[in-house]
């Protein structure tokens, strides 16, 4: 009896531990997916450079922590700010001239910008970098469950950022303008909404969140390289689609779902099957619900 109980407790602890890991990974995916989904909602354009802005966030974090030797909070704020500025610059230079062009050329431009960011970073720093530890990583043990302070910080911080974002979008005037633009692009400018400013703001917020995610990812998995944004970026894009692209709450849910699926697969199968199972599940979900979990099927007319 006691033996059984022990194994039961042990497996419960294991599940809980993995759930924490899933929350950590999921919150990072969710933060990046938010950037995809916000830009999509407002421009109906997939910003494929977003994953690479996430990578730039991690590199800014490295530069600031390594050369300026700032502590955690200023590093976070500065790298978010830096990535947000970069996002706005990219939007102004590369995407704005293409707003009236066919959708696909904007997508290809985004792919081009992403490749540019990757290879530019690679040209400047040819080898993977190690992030200096910014935080004292203490591990608390509750029973046989171990909690690391880093994990808690990543989860809490992303939840706080998401709450702030939700507040901005739902309660402020700028957020109202964002929702209005995603609702109707022809009427809203006539109502006196400064569309260009709002689009820039959306880019700034979305990429800023991506930068924050990059920093947290770099703290959690402290080796960074210029190509780290590709896989994570595509997975975050998948989270956005799973939640229903264009839908902010959907992106958060999608991120947590994908994080949970990946961690669970890695926990119960050989870890090389992780991508395979995760993507197969995604395919099944998309066949069952072709518009994502919270997405609404668009009315089709001739």
């Amino acid at each position: 009896m006691t033996e059984q109980r022990k194994t039961f407790n042990h497996s419960m602890v294991y599940v809980f531990q993995q759930a924490l890991n899933a929350l950590q990974l999921g919150s990072i995916y969710a933060l990046i997916a938010l950037g995809y989904t916000m830009v999509y909602g407002i421009l109906t354009m997939i910003n494929f450079a977003h994953g690479d802005l996430f990578m730039i966030g991690a590199f800014f974090c490295f530069l600031i922590a390594f050369y300026l030797k700032l502590s955690f909070v200023p590093t976070l704020l500065l790298s978010m700010l830096g990535v947000a500025c970069l996002g706005v610059i990219i939007e102004r230079l590369a995407y704005k001239p293409l707003r009236k062009a066919p959708r696909v050329s904007a997508i290809i431009t985004a792919l081009g910008v992403g490749l540019f960011l990757e290879n530019f970073t690679l040209a400047l720093s040819p080898y993977p970098k190690h992030i200096p530890p910014l935080l004292e990583n203490t591990t608390w043990t509750v029973g046989s469950l171990s909690l690391s302070s880093l994990q808690i910080i990543v989860i809490v911080l992303s939840l706080v950022l998401m709450l702030i974002l939700d507040f901005i979008v739902q309660r402020t005037k700028a957020g109202m303008a964002m929702r209005a633009i995603s609702w109707d692009k022809t009427i809203v400018p006539l109502m006196g909404v400064p569309v260009n400013k709002i689009i820039s703001l959306t880019f700034a917020i979305g990429t800023g969140l991506g930068g924050a995610a990059g920093m947290m990812y770099a703290l959690a998995y402290p080796v960074i390289d210029p190509y780290m944004g590709i896989m994570v970026g595509w997975k975050a894009f998948i989270s956005a689609v799973v939640g229903g692209i264009g839908n902010i709450r959907g992106a958060m849910i999608g991120g947590f779902i994908l994080g949970a699926v990946e961690i669970m697969v890695a926990a119960f199968f050989p870890s090389t099957y992780r991508d395979f199972v995760a993507f197969t599940l995604l395919l099944i979900l998309l066949i069952v619900r072709p518009y994502g979990i919270l997405g609404k099927p668009q009315p089709q007319k001739v």
Binding site: A94, P97, L98, S105, G112, V113, G114, L115, N119
Partner: peptide, 10 residues
């Protein structure tokens, strides 16, 4: 290359 691609697309 990507830079030229972006310019071409613009």
């Amino acid at each position: 290359m990507p830079l030229m691609l972006v310019l071409l697309m613009i």
